[in-house]
Design a protein around this nucleic acid. Structure first.
Length: 512
RNA sequence: GGCAGCGUAGCUCAGUUGGUGAGAGCGCCGGAUUCAUAACCCGGAGGUCGGCAGUUCAAAUCUGCCCGCUGCUACCA
C-alpha cells in the first residue's frame, strides 16, 4: 500500500520579489516531494504565500492601494517562479484564501476553549513611524532637534512606552511538553544543531505570546473581539492545516499531520515551538518533522541591495537552465547548512557532473549503438568480472542514494549517484568497446551494460532534474511507465529502437 | 556576556566508542587513450589535522588554556 506523505514549504512573505532563498526552498522541497513520488508514495505538496501582517499593510499603503490588491499583484512573481522552476505543488495556498480564514478562526476558538488565550495588555517601546515594538536592548541613544537625549528605534525613529490591549497565548505552560517532544523524538527538529538551539531556548523558560494586534487591521479578525487581528504567525502557521484539507468544522484535513515542514533556519523557532504549542492547545496532532535548511549566499555574502548582489532566481534559471540550477543547489549545498553560489561555481559543477559525467556516459555508448548496432539496444551478455564489479558499484550507489534521500541528505544522495557515474565511466574505459569491432556481440554487451547504468542513474536523478532526466530516459529507450524506483531492475529489452543520440547536458562554454 | 558548535590538502568538506601508512570531490600537474560533449581512464602533487600545554604505550580523534569563526539568546517576519 502506498505510503502517504504530506510535505510543505514555509509560505513566502510577498513584500518583495522572490529571491534565491525562496527558490532554494521550493526547489529542495520539490526534490523531496518528487523523490517520494518516485518511491511510490502518495504525496501532497503544499506551498504558497503569507499575505497578512503589518509590513504588507504598510507597503500597500505606501503605494496607495488596498492590501488585497497589493498582494494580488505581489503573489504573481512567486507563482511564476514556481512554474518556471518546475515546482510540483498540489496547492498554492494564500493566507488570504477564504477557507483559510475560516480555519484560523476555528483554530483560535479551540485554543480559547482550552483556556490558553486571555486578554491582557502588551507593553513595550513602540515606534509610531515604524508601527512596531522594539525590545529595550534594540534601542539606540540619540538626540532630538532640541538636543535632548532620547531613545530611538534601530531605524532611528522615536519610540515611546506604549500599552496596547492584546490577546495572549499561555506559551509558558507548554515548556515541559515541548521539551518532552524534542527529547522523545530527536528527529522532530532537524538538523540536530537546530534542535539543540530550540531546546536551549525552551529550557530557559517561555513567556506568554502576544497573539493579536490592534494597531492595524490587515489580518484575520479575532472571533468575538472587534478591533483585534491575529498575530500573523498564527495565521501563517495554520496554512499547513488548511492546505491539508482542514476546515472550520474539522481542523484536521485528510492529509494532516504533515510528514515534513521544510523551512528556513530563521523560522525554525516558529515551527518548532509556537506551532506545536498551538496544536497541543487545540488538540490537534503534531507534524512529524521540521527541517531547517540553511541559506544560500551569493559568493559567500548575504544578498543585499547595497552590495548589489541581489540575484533574481528566474533570471538565473533563464541563463543556465532550470535543471542546472536545481542540480547545483542540491548537489553543491549541504542540505541543512549554508551554501554559496556563483556563476563560476554553477558552470564548474554542472560541467563536471552533468556534461562530463552523466551526459558523456550516455552519449559515448549511444553514439556507438547508433553507429555500429543499427540504433537498437544490443543484448547484454552475462559478463565477467568487469560487469560484476559494475553491478556491485551500482547497487551500492543506489543503496547509498536511497538511504541519504530518506534521511534528507540530498547532497549525499547525489554524491552517491556520481559514484555510480564514475564506476560506469571506469567500466566503459576498462572494457574499451571501441576495440571490439571484430566482435560486435561482445561490444554490444558492453554498451548494453553501460546504457543500463545510465538508465539507473537517470532514474535516480529524476527528482532533481525532471526535464533533463526525462529527455535522457527517452534517449535510452525507457518506456514512460517504467521510470519509478520499482522499475530499477527493469532493463530495456534488447532490440528496443533508440533514437539518434542528442546530448542532453551540453558542456557550458566558458563565460563570455 | 551566556549557551552550543566549528577551525583537516588551493577550494568544499569526510574522518564511529583514541591505534596498521591522514582521506574524497572539484581545481591543478603528468601519463595513457581516442568510443564520447578536448570529455573519459590511470597516477601524482604531500596538508605542523587553528595554536600551546597535558593525559596515554598511542591523539586529527580525550582534558585545559589561547586565537579565529558561526549559530541561538522571543513577539518585523
Amino acid at each position: 500500500m502506498a505510503q502517504r506523505f504530506y510535505i510543505t514549504t514555509a509560505i513566502a512573505y510577498p513584500n518583495g520579489r522572490p529571491h534565491m532563498g525562496h527558490a532554494y526552498e521550493v526547489i529542495t522541497t520539490d526534490v523531496i516531494a518528487r523523490y517520494r513520488r518516485l518511491r511510490g508514495d502518495e504525496v501532497r505538496f503544499l506551498t504558497g504565500t503569507d499575505e497578512h501582517g503589518l509590513k504588507i499593510a504598510q507597503a500597500a499603503r505606501a503605494e496607495g492601494v488596498d492590501p488585497r490588491a497589493y498582494v494580488d499583484r505581489m503573489v504573481e512573481p512567486f507563482r511564476a517562479m514556481d512554474a518556471q522552476l518546475g515546482i510540483s505543488f498540489d496547492r498554492f495556498i494564500r493566507t488570504t484564501d477564504a477557507d483559510h480564514k475560516a480555519l484560523c478562526q476555528a483554530l483560535w476558538q479551540r485554543m480559547a476553549a482550552n483556556g490558553d488565550l486571555y486578554l491582557d495588555r502588551y507593553e513595550g517601546w513602540y515606534s509610531v513611524r515604524d508601527e512596531a515594538y522594539y525590545d529595550e536592548s534594540e534601542l539606540i541613544d540619540g538626540t532630538d532637534s532640541a538636543g535632548k537625549a532620547v531613545r530611538l528605534s534601530p531605524q532611528g525613529t522615536p519610540v515611546e512606552w506604549t500599552i496596547e490591549e492584546s490577546w495572549f497565548f499561555r506559551l509558558s505552560a507548554y515548556g515541559d511538553r515541548l521539551l518532552a517532544l524534542y527529547d522523545g523524538d530527536p528527529d522532530f527538529i532537524q538538523p540536530a544543531s537546530r534542535r539543540n538551539e530550540m531546546r536551549a531556548f525552551v529550557a530557559q523558560g517561555l513567556r506568554d505570546l502576544s497573539m493579536s494586534r490592534t494597531s492595524f487591521d490587515w489580518g484575520v479578525p479575532v472571533p468575538g473581539s472587534p478591533g483585534h487581528v491575529m498575530y500573523v504567525w498564527v495565521d501563517a502557521l495554520a496554512n499547513y492545516l488548511t492546505g491539508a484539507g482542514g476546515r472550520a468544522d474539522e481542523l484536521c484535513g485528510e492529509w494532516w499531520p504533515a510528514d515534513l515542514h521544510v523551512v528556513g533556519k530563521d523560522v525554525v523557532r516558529f515551527h518548532t515551538i509556537y506551532w506545536p504549542a498551538f496544536l497541543m492547545s487545540a488538540g490537534v496532532a503534531l507534524p512529524k518533522r521540521v527541517f531547517g535548511h540553511g541559506h544560500v549566499l551569493n559568493r559567500g555574502e548575504k544578498m543585499s541591495k547595497s552590495v548589489g548582489n541581489v540575484v533574481d532566481p528566474m533570471a538565473m534559471a533563464e541563463v543556465f537552465g532550470v535543471d542546472r540550477l536545481r542540480w547545483f543547489l542540491c548537489r553543491d549545498v549541504a542540505f541543512g547548512e549554508d551554501g554559496s553560489y556563483s556563476d563560476e561555481a554553477i558552470v564548474e559543477r554542472c560541467n563536471a557532473d552533468l556534461a562530463n559525467g552523466i551526459g558523456n556516459l550516455a552519449q559515448r555508448a549511444l553514439a556507438m549503438v547508433a553507429k555500429g548496432h543499427g540504433g537498437a539496444m544490443p543484448a547484454a551478455g552475462a559478463g565477467g568480472e568487469g560487469e560484476a564489479a559494475l553491478a556491485e558499484a551500482l547497487a551500492r550507489g543506489t543503496a547509498d542514494y536511497l538511504a541519504a534521500m530518506d534521511a534528507l541528505a540530498i547532497h549525499r544522495g547525489l554524491e552517491a549517484v556520481m559514484g555510480m557515474v564514475s564506476a560506469a565511466n571506469g567500466y566503459f574505459a576498462a572494457s574499451a568497446p571501441w576495440t571490439m569491432k571484430q566482435d560486435l556481440a561482445a561490444q554490444g554487451s558492453v554498451l548494453a551494460h553501460a546504457l543500463d547504468a545510465s538508465r539507473r542513474i537517470a532514474l535516480l536523478v529524476q527528482p532533481v532534474m525532471p526535464a533533463s532526466a526525462a529527455a535522457l530516459l527517452d534517449q535510452l529507450g525507457v518506456a514512460a511507465g517504467a521510470r519509478s524506483l520499482a522499475d530499477l531492475d527493469a532493463r530495456v529489452p534488447a532490440g528496443t529502437p533508440l533514437p539518434p543520440p542528442q546530448g542532453v547536458f551540453p558542456r557550458w562554454a566558458p563565460l563570455a
